[in-house]
Design a binder for these strands. Structure first.
Lengths: 150, 150
DNA sequence: GTATATTAAGACAAAATAGTCTTATATATT
DNA sequence: AATATATAAGACTATTTTGTCTTAATATAC
């Protein structure tokens, strides 16, 4: 799996927040219910995004979380970096720590090309894009969670 | 990480076997020493490849493992499928079980394009390619394991 | 046939990841 | 002030992945 489960949860919650495009705060409980993710676990995931200043949180009644910037200004990659870190950018396909331009492993050239494409995509796509696609499918995220399609 | 550690060990051992291009058996001990991988763990990894009939094994003195076919006839993808299975081929970037053409998740189109490129590469590269590159670098795999480059 | 060399198999341990639960802290409402 | 609502933080548990160790099975050589 390319991204950790934690990261995927963060991406889904971020995309859902973006699709709501609300100015006020959304509770994590609402997000966890819609996404069918454990409330407590999602709380911890979103804390990372808050610390990275991708989200803003507010305690107490009418509190919750919201995007810290406009959805078009937060990239897929921002969420990945915040949660999974930058290991994806540097990792050798064969897991060799010394692999690089000077001492390429047998996979280096092929893999770094592909990796660059992945990174480009992640830097290209914003939460707004995710939210747009999300809305255009006329599907709730919840429907995915039921696994009703192969 | 795209591939499991187990899978990476399998790939490295397979590439090393291919680079030796020996007709007789190589002991797992020799492979594990050169690759600096735990002997017992590598044994279990290679057992999977043997069961998948990518390798042949032989017990007793002068025994060991060798490629079951010529190196140019075993693909990177064969090893990945044997060890990690085909989850990579089907996985949605957002981990949504229902994601597909009928009910695409917000990432579906972009991700399936990239995924296809990855799969194409893995089906394209053979152990012979890995071995060639490996030899042309004039580096032992061992030098990578020391992590002497950023 | 006994000793030696090798993979096969499976029990066990350690580490990383994922998930749960409880308590603390901040805010709003009354 | 008291109560209710929300995130923050951290202890704890469960699961998966990775790694270790012991024993079994098989083949060779003498």
């Amino acid at each position: 799996m390319l991204l950790s489960q934690t990261c995927i949860y963060g991406l889904r919650a971020s995309a859902l927040l973006a699709s709501k495009s609300r100015a006020d705060y959304t509770t994590i409980r609402e997000l966890s219910d819609e996404l069918d993710i454990s409330f407590h676990f999602l709380t911890k995931v979103l804390q990372k995004l808050t610390k990275s200043e991708l989200l803003e949180s507010y305690k107490g009644p009418n509190g919750g979380v919201k995007l810290a910037r406009t959805a078009s200004d937060i990239k897929f990659m921002d969420v990945v970096l915040s949660i999974d870190g930058d290991s994806l950018l540097h990792e050798c396909a064969l897991g060799l720590p010394g692999c690089g331009i000077l001492e390429p492993c047998p996979m280096h050239d092929q893999w770094s090309g592909l990796k660059q494409n992945i990174v480009t995509m992640m830097k290209d796509i914003t939460l707004k894009d995710l939210a747009n696609n999300y809305n255009s499918t006329h599907l709730t995220f919840d429907s995915f969670n039921k696994g009703n399609q192969v």
